[in-house]
Structure formats: structure tokens, C-alpha cells
């Protein structure tokens, strides 16, 4: 590990000042300490932000929720408002990492997390994310876990977060505070596909601090849930996952929000699936027909072709689970 100096800040102004001088924010540390130990990350100044007042979950006026960046994954998952309004968030969090890690890791750190691509984590392998221009060892290497959606010729690493998939489905916004003040960015614009700059993974500007993730209001009742498919049943990243939220009125689907994880370079929203659902009455045939579009545009690599079929089945299953809750299917 590269040596670093350590400073703990107690207010937002202090954090921004330290960030402006090039300090790296440290929240739960579960990603940053790990990558520093592997020499993948080599910050020279760590700015401990854990004492900042960003640890609250509050209801917004319209019926949405604002989750502070420093809320721990365990706290967010267990919070009564989250469980009541957006079970998909709780389920995504509780299927992430382990109980110990969720006690440490924060919501802000979670959406900022970098890929788990083994070539990215191995400083002896070629990786354009770690070292722009070095090449991508995954494209011609072992790429079973890699993305089938959103890859470029420079990078096919997946975004590993589960809760970001739930946030993407629910069209969450990321609140940021920087030297130029506050701004809010849709999560869909915040997490960047690799394109020609795989080293740039988030739209955060230098020194910007995430203050919260906000879930907008959705019509109620909203039924939602998360399904994660992986090589072992727990304590493992997704091969495929699906976040589904449905609002039915008089037996008809009025709103459908669907996103997939484990398959994209960013959490992958599925508008084609959503469009097929809206205005329809739930049925097994509808779930199957909509899920058939889940892998639209997929470009598999040598070892991950199975994800196309697995993704469709994951989405179909979760549409059925949430759809049955939301009003029952014939």
C-alpha cells in the first residue's frame, strides 16, 4: 500500500476544502482500502467523511425518499420507510456483500464503487480503466462475468452494485455538492458507460461530494422487488439481476419500472420491457413476452453468451413475482 496522510473532517466546508486540494473521500472504506491494498488505488491523502451530517433518511414532500450518502447499507435496508415504500431497495441491499460489510459500507460509496473485473484488480494485467491505453485483458481473456450490454472495444467490465440497479429502475437522482455549489444528476447520467474513456466511471467532478440519493415519488401502491442470480446463493456478485416495480390500477399496469444488473457496464434500464407492460393486464404470457426484450442489443463475449437467456428468465421470474403481489395474474 502506498503511504498516505489521513485527516478527518467534521463539516461539509472542511470536506470540500480537503477535496479541492486533491484529498480522496473515505466513507466505509470497504472498497477503497481493498483497492489500495492491491495498489490499484494510490491516493496520497485520505479525507475521512464519516462524521459529516449525511446520515439521514428523510421523506420528500411529494412522497419520495432522500437517503443520505453516509447511511450505511445495513441501516438503509432496515429502515421502515424504505421497506414500506421501496422493498426493491431493501432486497437489493440485503442481497449485497455480507452483514459485516453492510455494517460498514455506505450508500454513497456503493454507487461510487468500481468494477470487480479481476483484470482491473490485478495490476499486472492490461486494463484501460486502470491505465488508459494499456488494452483490455478481458476482451480476449476469461470474460464469463463481463457485460453483454454497454461494452466498448476498450472495456467490458460490469458495474457491480445491486442497489444501483434498484435506484436505476426507480429513476433516482444523485445529489452532489462541489466547489461550485449543489447540483442533482440522474443516476442514469451519473454512472458512465466505458465508451472511449473507461477510466471515467462517474460524472462526479473533482472534489465533488455525494450528499444523498433521492428516489422520486411514484404512484402508490407500488409493488417492487429484486432478484439476484449468482454462482453461490449469498455473499457473491450478480451474474444477472432484475429490479422490478409495478403500479396497477383496476387490474391494469399503469407504471412499470425495470432494470437489470450483472449484465451491463452500468445498471441497465429496460425501456422496451417497460413499454410492453404498460396498459396491459398481468398474465403469464405478458411476463414472457415482455422479458423476451430484456436482452435487446446484447453483444456477448466468448464466455458470457449464457447471460442472454439467463437475463430473460431472471426478468420474467421477477415480473411474475412482483406482478402476482401487485394484483395477481390469471
Amino acid at each position: 500500500m502506498h503511504p498516505f496522510s489521513y485527516t478527518k473532517v467534521s463539516d461539509l466546508a472542511g470536506a470540500l476544502a480537503a477535496g479541492r486540494r486533491g484529498g480522496r473521500y473515505l466513507a466505509g472504506g470497504t472498497m477503497l482500502v481493498d483497492l489500495m491494498r492491491e495498489s490499484v488505488e494510490r491516493p496520497s491523502v485520505l479525507v475521512d467523511i464519516s462524521a459529516l451530517p449525511l446520515g439521514e433518511i428523510t421523506a420528500t414532500a411529494g412522497g419520495g425518499l432522500r437517503i443520505g450518502a453516509l447511511v450505511r447499507m445495513a441501516e438503509a435496508a432496515a429502515h421502515p420507510s424504505v421497506r414500506a415504500a421501496f422493498p426493491v431497495i431493501s432486497q437489493a441491499l440485503e442481497s449485497s456483500a455480507s452483514a459485516q460489510l453492510r455494517n460498514m459500507a455506505t450508500i454513497g460509496g456503493n454507487i461510487m464503487q468500481r468494477t470487480r473485473c479481476p483484470y482491473f484488480r490485478d495490476v499486472t494485467a492490461a486494463c484501460n480503466k486502470r491505465e488508459p491505453g494499456a488494452g483490455c485483458a478481458a476482451l480476449g481473456g476469461f470474460n464469463r462475468a463481463h457485460a453483454i450490454l454497454g461494452a466498448s472495444e476498450h472495456c467490458a467490465a460490469t458495474h457491480p452494485s445491486d442497489v444501483a440497479v434498484a435506484f436505476a429502475a426507480l429513476e433516482a437522482n444523485v445529489h452532489l455538492l462541489g466547489p461550485d455549489g449543489e447540483r442533482s444528476v440522474a443516476l442514469a447520467d451519473f454512472l458512465l458507460p466505458p465508451g472511449g474513456t473507461p477510466q471515467r466511471e462517474q460524472a462526479a467532478r473533482p472534489g465533488e461530494l455525494i450528499t444523498a440519493v433521492e428516489i422520486p415519488a411514484h404512484p402508490r401502491p407500488l409493488r417492487s422487488g429484486y432478484l439476484k442470480v449468482r454462482d453461490r446463493q449469498s455473499y457473491e456478485f450478480a451474474l444477472t439481476s432484475a429490479a422490478v416495480a409495478l403500479h396497477l390500477r383496476d387490474g391494469v399496469i399503469h407504471q412499470a419500472k425495470v432494470a437489470a444488473g450483472g449484465v451491463g457496464t452500468v445498471p441497465w434500464k429496460l425501456p422496451a420491457v417497460e413499454r410492453l407492460l404498460i396498459g396491459e393486464r398481468p398474465s403469464q404470457a405478458l411476463w414472457a413476452e415482455a422479458a423476451e426484450r430484456a436482452a435487446d442489443g446484447a453483444r456477448p463475449l466468448e464466455h458470457n453468451r449464457f447471460k442472454i437467456e439467463l437475463l430473460k428468465r431472471t426478468v420474467e421470474r421477477q415480473l411474475r413475482v412482483v406482478g402476482d403481489l401487485a394484483g395477481g395474474t390469471a
Binding site: T30, R37, A97, S98, A99, L101, N103
Partner: peptide, 22 residues
């Protein structure tokens, strides 16, 4: 690296991975 749990201890009453705790 946070991937096995052998280092689990309680910090302020909560179970955490000591290997990823500075």
C-alpha cells in the same frame, strides 16, 4: 480483502471486517 469473515470483530457493538478497517 473482506471476502471471508475470519477477521470479524465488533466495533461499537456492530460486527465488521477488521481487515478493511483502518
Amino acid at each position: 480483502a473482506g471476502a471471508c469473515g475470519a477477521c470479524t470483530v465488533l466495533v461499537d457493538g456492530r460486527r465488521v471486517n477488521a481487515c478493511l478497517t483502518l
